[in-house]
Structure formats: C-alpha cells, structure tokens
Amino acid sequence: MIELDGVSKEFVVGGRAVRVLDDVHLSIPRGMIYGIIGHSGAGKSTLVRCINLLERPSAGRVVVNDRELTALDDGSLQRERQKIGMVFQHFNLLSSRTAAENVAFPLELAGWPKDKRRRRVEELLRLVGLWELRDQYPSRLSGGQKQRVGIARALAPEPDVLLCDEATSALDPQTTESILELLAAINRTFHLTLVIITHEMHVVTSICDRVAVLHQGRIVEEGPVVDLFLRPQNPVTREFVRQVGGREDPPIHPAGEMVLHCLFVGEITHEPILFEVAEEAGVRFNILQGNVGRMKEIPYGRLVVAVHGSENGKTRAVQALRNRGVRVEEVKAHGSGTLG
C-alpha cells in the first residue's frame, strides 16, 4: 500500500545541510495499523509528511496505492492527496467553520455536489459521535471533540490511507483511549491503512500491528509489535518498551537455582502449561515474577520461574516448555541483559 524506497530528506539550516531522514525503506501493507515511534527530533513528522509529499524527499521514491507520488506533477499530486487522509496533533481545524462545515471542507475541494456532501457529513459526524455538536465552532469543542472532527474530516473523501501525526499527543489519557478505540474501529470497519506516528509506546501496543522505530532519521528496528515488544534488539526500542513496563527490573535470583524467563504469546497463554510441564518432567516451579497483558488482540504472559528438581528433570522441563511454544531463556545470576 505504501512504499518508501530510500527516502532521505535534508534541510538547510543556517547554510548547513541537516539530514533529517537517512535512506528510509518502509513497506506498509494494505489494511494494517502501522506505528512509527521515535523521540522528538527523530524525524517522525518529516517522515509522515514525506508520505503525502507535504515535504518533498531530497532523494528516494514514495509509492502510495501503486502511484509513484514522487513522479507526479502538482495537479495529479493534489488529486492523489484527496485519497490520503491526515490527522494532526493540533487538529488544524478551520476556526471560521462549524464542525459540519469542517468535515464538508475536503468534499468541497474535491467538488462533491451539495446534497451528496450533506449526506456524507451526517454519516461521518454520527460515526465519530458528534452529530449533536455539528453546528458548533471549534473554539467551543474540547480537545477530544476537535480530534473527532479532525478524524471525520480526514475520512470524508473516502481515503485509502489515514496518516495520524501524533494524533493523541495533545489529549489526556482517557480521551487518548477513546480516540485510539475510534481509530481501531475505523481500521476494522473500512479496512483502511493507518499510519500512526507517536512517541508513546502504549499507543503502539494498544492498536498497532507492526511498528518501526525511528532514531536520528534512520529506522533502527522494524517488525510485528509483539516481537519488538517482547524482544527489543536496539537500545532505543528497549527504552520505549520500558515506558510501558514491558521490561522489568533484574529478577530476584535465589542462589544456586535455575531461573527461567518464559514468554507466552497468543493462545498458549490460556493453557495450564507450567502445571503440565511440572508433571511431565518431575520438577516444581516457583514463580518469582510475572505479568500478563494484551497487545491489540494478542494475549501474552511473562513469567520468571525458579526450577527445583534433578538436573535431568530441569533439562526435560526446558525442552517441554519449548515444545509447547513457550520462549524460554535461562537467567544467569546477576545477569539483567539476557531479558528482552
């Protein structure tokens, strides 16, 4: 759906060229919620603006919906942009227009006839739950309500892609939740491809399928959210994972005991695996630490356990756990780096 091929962007600041994006390759499949996470200044906003060419890349190709945007003239680009919705951190609503008139705005630009426009506006304001506030000006709306108008406006011309640039960063936690739910629902209902730019890991874990970690203009890690969350490779990724408590303090390590770090992802989370393995291998488990959670729809569990029993039994236990699809790693005493 979206292909970025060697995209670089340089800005000239005070006569000096600053490279904001450095050879970025991204491939975002249709219908996916794709997260791009990074600290401020990592180049996230520039990256998302390169997708609809609000910023023209210094090098590289941008392909959206099989159209190479970087090769289009202004007129064709403007038509293609109507199929790429964008939601902004600060909403960017027209203050001189009511909620309904704001949603109608992109339809006016695209030349929709008036009655078709009116029907579409009603449909969308009902979808985002703001039909009652249709005649209010943005100055009378709360942040969450403004963002709902922003989302309705972005969806109005029936886009294939929705770009969200820090769409929840100006909102309180509760409002953030409701906006994320709305975005996930939109993705499910309309099979729209969503690109979510954020600096908050919980945004990624609650709705994204895949994520790319951007650091100093480069993508340092990319993959399914579950993988990155459970086994972050890059230090920057680890730091983000720590934001949502995904990576714990070094576990309590009883002297002389074998300690295992076990990850359960998906359906196996619901099964009594520890109990079964204890019986099979003739060992006993002592749970030292653990947490259970959910990433989007995928349940996961993380347990740190001490294993009591014969050497032979311990080996068999590790094997039995692995056979059941548990990711097992032995934790060495004083070792904290082996956990991912």
Partner: peptide, 18 residues
C-alpha cells in the same frame, strides 16, 4: 493564519487558489 491549518488544506489536496 495558523500554518497548521494551511498544511491541513494542502494535505487534503487543496489548490493554491482554494
């Protein structure tokens, strides 16, 4: 006029005259 609003219009495919 807020630059963000102008940017939003550009993102929606508005022509300069619009």
């Amino acid at each position: 006029v807020d630059r963000g609003v102008i940017e939003a219009a550009q993102a929606m495919g508005a022509r300069p005259a619009q």
